[in-house]
Computed example of a mutant assay.
Amino acid sequence: MQAPPPRARAVRAAGPPPAVTRAAYGTLPGGAPVTRWTLDSGTGVRAEVLDYGGILHRLDVPDAAGRPDTVVLGLDTLDDYLADTAYLGALIGRYANRIAHGRFALDGHPHQVPVNDRGHALHGGTEGFDRRRWRATPQLSPDAAALRLDLRSPHGDMGFPGTLDVTAVYTLDRHGTLRLELTARARRATPVSLTHHAYFNLAGPAGGPVLGHLLAVDADAYLPVDTTAIPLGPAAATAGTPFDFRRPRPIGERIGADHPQLLAAGGYDHCYVLAPPPAGDPLRRAARLHDPRSGRRLELWTTEPGLQVYTGNALDGSLRGPDGTRYLRHGAICLEAQQFPDAPNRPDYPDPVVRPGTERRSTTEFRFPHLRAAAPGPGAGSR
């Protein structure tokens, strides 16, 4: 039985007002400048976002004793991000996860996306939204600091049909909740799955593997995959398998089990089928993460139907953080709220197509309940 963490130090309601600041971060090969935007809640939580890739560069969160550290993996320089193939902290699109062989047909017309992962298209192809410079606009209110990012993806971009206008809004409120709102508007029918690819380590990037973190996923089914990470078909029940996280379990408890799905991926890299949202509120809890050492807790709430759980199986020490820390295998976990992988080819999956005159909206919140546990007064939580 885990010993209880130290009593949480609450995020204070009083303090400086939220703020947004900016600093130069480098220049892209074509000469365009990249800016690092800092969202400060005024109550101890800070987020740094780049307008290249919409990358969440840092997310500083106090632990249960009030000591701050970033809880996401980041890189040192813009050149490091330009060379990165692990999608650290990036916004992902036009289609997150994989499309088998990069091919799909829509309304009778075939389309081909460049393949970049074992013969399949991953995260939008070779030049996805993580490789784009987004237009940034800071936004402020008395209770939150926000950054709006806009991107236009033209017709034929990476083989996808139709011009797509995408907006991403990062909002950090005074309770320490980081909210990401994604909106996509299409001029002709196109499949869309947008997600965020933060690598979380609640002990801090130098905290070692996350195998001791406790994970809970609010799902009783997941999508088994073949040896190239393409879904095999219908969802499978998690009960009685190493994929059952309906109650909190250490990530490392069964990650090395003799199970074909774990052996093929080198750990967890699977999409969980989330329970339908409650009536009247499309935002529901999808996952909880807890580091007993630091006392930090994370809850992910989302409107998306799927959650890809990836345990950093391909991290091999070649990437380093700003402090020189090497990012090793299982050194972080990604919790990627998204549409189902390969859904453009699977009519039995939720429909990922956005059509003219409609828009796809999704919201994901990263909440830190250990900061709110002792917050004074009513309404201390974000919801």
Score class of each variant (00 low, 15 high):
17 P>H: 08
35 T>Y: 00
43 T>P: 02
49 V>R: 06
51 D>V: 07
53 G>F: 13
62 P>G: 04
71 V>F: 07
78 L>Y: 12
82 L>Y: 02
84 D>R: 12
84 D>Y: 13
85 T>W: 08
86 A>I: 06
86 A>S: 14
89 G>I: 10
92 I>L: 10
92 I>H: 05
94 R>D: 01
99 I>L: 11
102 G>R: 11
108 G>F: 05
108 G>N: 09
111 H>E: 02
116 N>L: 11
121 A>P: 02
135 R>H: 11
146 A>S: 15
152 R>H: 12
155 H>S: 15
163 T>G: 14
165 D>M: 06
175 H>M: 13
186 A>R: 05
187 R>T: 15
195 T>Y: 05
195 T>M: 08
205 P>H: 09
207 G>R: 06
207 G>T: 03
222 Y>P: 02
229 A>S: 12
240 G>R: 08
249 R>S: 03
249 R>D: 00
256 G>E: 04
274 L>P: 05
279 A>I: 07
292 P>V: 14
305 P>N: 06
306 G>H: 07
315 L>Q: 11
317 G>C: 05
322 P>N: 06
326 R>H: 13
328 L>K: 13
336 E>A: 10
349 Y>S: 10
355 R>A: 10
355 R>D: 01
357 G>E: 01
360 R>H: 14
363 T>N: 06
369 P>G: 09
369 P>H: 12
374 A>I: 00
375 A>Y: 00
